[in-house]
Amino acid sequence: MKTVLEILSVLILIAGLIPIIKNDHWIFRVFDYPRFQKLFVCLIILVLWLFLGFSDFGKLDYILFIGVVMMAIFQMYQIYPFTIFSPKMVKDTGSGSDFPTISVMVINVYQYNKDYQKALKLIQREDPDILLLAETDLNWAKEMSEFKNSHPHFVEIPQENTYGMLFYSKLPILEYEVQHLIDQEIPSIEALVKLQSGDNVKIFAIHPTPPVPSENPTSTERDAEILLVGKKVKHYDKPTLVMGDLNDVGWSYTSELFLKISGLLDPRRGRGMFNTFHAKYFFLRWPLDHIFVSKHFTLDNLKIHHNIGSDHFPISAGFSLKPMNDNENFEAEEEEKEEADQKIANGK
């Protein structure tokens, strides 16, 4: 029993420390994802150590026990911003307010999912102003075409490589551009929409590749695309949303660097993890789909919706345009700006 606990303790310490290493290879980056799971495993191991008792502890056992305690505290510290106990990064709009609003929904439909009706019913019920569907091929474009009636402004980029996008809007699209920021096979959308109030909002829709052996062995291109959008947002400095399946968790180093470079805010912070992946395995869930906003917005609501047959849960949010709020964003140090530039250069 003690030998098993020693092995488990060493493994969880390695799993907890690996993400600290700034290496883009997937072996290092994949350990960014299961932060809550690592905390849970730490607590289980500590309970088992206590159950075993201290009478039979050797020097190595004490070192491992203390190491797992410190790792559990470290994981709690990392998770804390994504709990209800942390200050909210995007303030609540509050009741009785009368500001311009925008509602958005992001769904990674999973290209090979044929249960179109589940997605249709969810979208019809929620009826967002802006709808982004990722992993959409020609079949999905055909099945979703009815939304052109309720959302007459749209950008459709169906693809067969799991990186297609469908962007539907009730709000007028004043201008848009389909971009290929890093890879010619991976599209993104930059659109300017007009609210009913007459205010303009810039929206970036992205879906970079994940750092997994079957897709991309490193996170270099993913990080570069995310940070490149962050620099675009910073230069724009007006009401902005960035949405999509970023294939990265909100607590990773890259995501935090993105918030610092862009000046955007994460509505999850101070509210919970709102996990969107993996829909089929409850013990392997983390937030991969995101809706980031500029400091001009406050939050009306944030929801994770039921499974539509995809490996992702849909996520939606409602925001109010309230320029005179007290949101506080991160600020990038000069060294972090240089690091972001280097990551972008490496990804091109």
Rank of each mutant, 00 (worst) to 15 (best):
H290S: 05
K238F: 09
F147M: 07
S294G: 11
P100F: 06
F297S: 00
V69Y: 09
A317E: 10
V193N: 04
V193H: 10
T209C: 13
I107T: 04
F85Q: 11
Y163N: 03
D223E: 10
A340K: 00
F154Y: 15
L174W: 06
R271I: 07
Q111I: 08
R125M: 11
M70V: 08
K118N: 00
W286L: 10
H151N: 09
S95H: 15
R222D: 01
W251M: 03
G270C: 09
I45K: 02
L43N: 12
H25R: 15
E175W: 09
L131D: 05
K202F: 02
H25A: 15
P81S: 07
L181R: 10
W49L: 12
P158I: 05
E328S: 14
K322N: 15
D32T: 06
L228K: 07
C42F: 00
L17C: 06
E221Y: 09
G53I: 10
Y62H: 14
V68M: 03
Y253L: 08
I189R: 09
F31H: 13
N161E: 14
E135M: 13
F57I: 09
L46M: 13
V4E: 13
G198H: 04
E333F: 10
K303R: 10
H312N: 11
C42G: 12
I63C: 07
I308Y: 00
G244Y: 03
Y236I: 12
P323Y: 12
L284Y: 03
N200H: 00
I182F: 03
K231C: 12
Q159Y: 14
F167T: 07
E225K: 06
E334M: 04
L13M: 12
K238T: 13
G96R: 14
I84T: 13
K337A: 07
L133K: 06
F297E: 03
P208D: 04
F277P: 04
V242Y: 00
F313Q: 00
A332C: 05
Y33L: 08
E126Y: 07
T209Q: 06
N247K: 04
N216H: 13
I73D: 02
I315Y: 01
I157F: 09
W251C: 01
D129W: 07
I189A: 00
F319G: 00
E215I: 15
N325L: 14
F74R: 06
Y33N: 02
D341N: 05
V193S: 07
M89S: 09
I291A: 12
S197G: 08
V293R: 01
D32N: 11
P323R: 14
L39D: 07
I308H: 08
G53P: 05
Y110L: 15
N275H: 08
K91W: 05
I123G: 06
S310H: 02
V229P: 01
F258V: 10
L60K: 01
F283Y: 14
F204G: 04
S103D: 11
L43C: 11
L246P: 08
E339D: 00
Y77E: 13
F167P: 02
E156P: 03
L181M: 13
Y163L: 13
Y80P: 01
F319L: 12
V178I: 11
E175R: 08
V106P: 11
V229W: 09
L17E: 03
R222I: 02
D32Y: 02
I203Q: 01
F258N: 02
F74E: 10
K118P: 02
E175M: 07
E339H: 00
K322M: 15
I12Q: 02
I206L: 03
N216V: 12
D115L: 14
A141N: 14
S97Y: 15
L120Q: 05
K118Q: 10
